[in-house]
Design a protein around this nucleic acid. Structure first.
Lengths: 401, 401
DNA sequence: CCTCCGTCCGGAAGCGCTTTCATCACGCGG
DNA sequence: CCGCGTGATGAAAGCGCTTCCGGACGGAGG
């Protein structure tokens, strides 16, 4: 067929190719077809048959591979010197360094990351472990992280580590192995065994969107954020306050009890004994919140206000309430945490947290770890500020006129 | 300080190290500190001073680097044979292959991607170009893609290509260069110059979330989806139908006119001349939709229904309407496209599209391109089905009792 | 005037893998 | 019983880069 290809090497050695070898390179295996076509294009020649490629789908290799040697030659120095010059090593004459830089720029030279890494350099890659990329919170975190990593010329490799089996699989196979310089763990707790496994990667680890002991981390103070929310409801006069808690079977939250304990503490401080009956646990989603809210409505004495662990859950609760014919906030107040963009649209009162900023800071921590000389004695655990955003889903109890 | 390190090599050659060399390796440059600490740990020894690391932050390198040679030795074969065995090449005895596999498994061997790539193999990495990772649509696309790529043991490298300057920067610097086997472009159009640049990467290109001529792609039929939405409104009896169009300065949508042209065509087919006054263009966001809706409300004769290019815009519109004291759908109907999870929560009527599935299929196309032998003559352009989801934001005009 | 010690640079040795080429053992028809 | 094709294997040559070593060179110090 027109896709048959023959190695130059084989060709250049005359027709001494054995039929076996020819068969092998002529019939691309499932794993080699593409590589023949693209990656070894510089060694390969396409032997077009009668049905020549109509689409102009000839090998795409358009840029010639510029190597360090090319740069060195152009600058009139050796490859060793060129490498030193580009790598900002000392003991290179200023003039030489300049010449090499110019040559590199002129040739549009980009070091091969593979060769560089193989010879002892860094990979320039950072792994990001994320439970659920499509949730706004994680998307936002990633966005902040990406911006920072890009500025540092690091690439972001995404690994989804969602359900328990994903998680097991990841830590068992450790696909990030030998592939990255650092790992960022987004918003989930890492247990002892996993910690050990991660440590065996021999890379820097940073946590974002929550705290992980023993790693540098950025996050918010969950307890404080929770207090802000519950205190707001208490301040409005509510005493029977329900809680829609994010389920945490997969330890998605490093501080699963922060928000929950805040609810208890706030109620106690207000002189109201927390009633565990008012806690409904469900997945961190709109559906979860809707379902949990329904459970609370089934109580003989439903709450007059609910505190949801996140905005999605809060919005789910609002839907359940509306469907039940209840008015928000007149009949029941709802507050969340996050300040999801849709919270503004749906007029949801919430406690805002700077999510993208958390990603950004995590990126900085990574860069520090990679570029910095000495790691800090005690891993920094940054807490970014949160603030209450008053909107239309909270009001004093019995506010209906 | 306690972080000073000396190369084993330098040490083993006795104390012939020059003071210059010592100075250089002893004082980690901004770019080398971390690498000394982690990556070249196997060549380095930590010379702890009096202030020994108290945190037990000794070099983390815990796993010994297992090389192909180790595997080969254990299996009692040469490295060449081991490589062939693991790479599924022919001409390897079944028994040998088996032995090598076992040895590799036992040693927990993972090929060094750098070395592999350098020697002509694939990188096992796929670049994903995404405009806006925190938007649900893209997150979902990424999630689908990731699942598929993971199954094929490919890593996903994320590049945010958002605003025009990002875009220019990306295509100018082409950071994916020499780093990936394929590129997936999410939901944005690629112009001629960019196409050429991408082609120069010498990798496979796939588009998802929209069509891009000359690349294999997956997406939905925007025109058809738009028709479904507008036809629904027409069917309910609306004739004065507004449109909240997603702004497309950055050519975020490969088929910018698909949804818009659907609106025109549907109206014409229904015997109503489309009134361009009823088109409000704004960013693809809740805020954008809210603002665009406000503009339409300012018309002397506002529409009785609006078709939004996406659910976020539709939700923004709903907020504007509520704030204006209008009831949805009694006073004005609203329909979107996407079936965003919050659409279900907010009872928004919409045209659902299988976003995650698009990501998944894009992943398959990538794998096909990489593993497949011959690229298809004409790049496949898959259209995934959409369907109308009836909820509570649409009703016949004047439905208020 | 001759060391000694810097600076600056080139040669060369790998990094861990894939692939080519040569070799070897085997079984077969002549 | 020899030559030869065939399948299985090993030795070795790179891939492009970083880094080590030592040589050349020049100025300071004896």
């Amino acid at each position: 067929m027109c896709v048959s290809q023959v190695k130059c090497a084989a060709r250049s050695h005359g027709d001494s190719v054995t039929s076996g070898a020819t068969r092998w390179s002529g019939r691309p295996s499932p794993a080699s077809g593409f590589w023949n076509r693209f990656h070894t294009a510089c060694h390969a020649r396409v032997v077009t048959g009668d049905t020549a490629e109509p689409q102009g789908r000839v090998p795409l290799r358009a840029v010639a591979r510029v190597t360090l040697d090319d740069v060195a030659r152009r600058a009139g120095v050796s490859a060793a010197t060129a490498s030193r010059a580009l790598g900002d090593h000392p003991h290179v004459a200023e003039a030489t360094r300049h010449r090499v830089r110019e040559a590199a720029a002129a040739l549009d030279y980009v070091a091969s990351p593979e060769a560089s890494r193989l010879a002892g350099g860094p990979t320039g890659r950072v792994a990001v472990l994320v439970p659920h990329p499509s949730r706004w919170f994680f998307g936002e975190l990633i966005e902040g992280l990406e911006a920072e990593l890009r500025a540092a010329e690091l690439d972001l490799v995404l690994f989804r580590v969602g359900g328990p089996e994903d998680r097991r699989d990841f830590f068992a196979r450790l696909p990030a192995r030998r592939k990255v310089d650092a790992v960022v763990v987004l918003a989930f707790a890492v247990d002892e065994a996993e910690h050990a496994r991660l440590a065996s990667l021999g890379v820097a680890v940073v946590a974002a969107g929550g705290r992980v002991a023993s790693y540098p981390s950025v996050g918010i103070d969950d307890h404080r954020a929770g207090r802000r929310a519950v205190d707001h409801l208490l301040h409005l006069g509510h005493r029977r306050i329900g809680m829609l808690a994010g389920g945490d079977e997969q330890r998605l939250s490093p501080d699963p009890d922060g928000r929950s304990s805040a609810w208890r503490a706030a109620l106690r401080d207000a002189g109201a004994e927390p009633d565990e009956e008012l806690v409904a646990t469900a997945p961190w989603s709109g559906e979860g919140g809707a379902e949990a809210m329904a459970r609370l409505l089934g109580l003989s004495t439903p709450p007059t206000a609910v505190f949801a662990h996140c905005d999605e859950m809060a919005l789910g609760a609002v839907r359940t309430l509306r469907r039940a014919g209840l008015r928000v906030p007149e009949d029941l107040s709802v507050i969340g945490i996050d300040d999801h963009p849709l919270a503004a649209l749906t007029d949801l009162t919430t406690v805002a947290q700077p999510v993208r900023e958390q990603g950004r800071r995590a990126g900085e921590l990574v860069v520090d770890a990679l570029r910095g000389s000495a790691p800090p004695r005690v891993p920094p655990a940054e807490m970014l500020p949160t603030h209450l955003v008053l909107r239309g889903t909270t009001a004093p109890p019995g506010a209906a006129r």
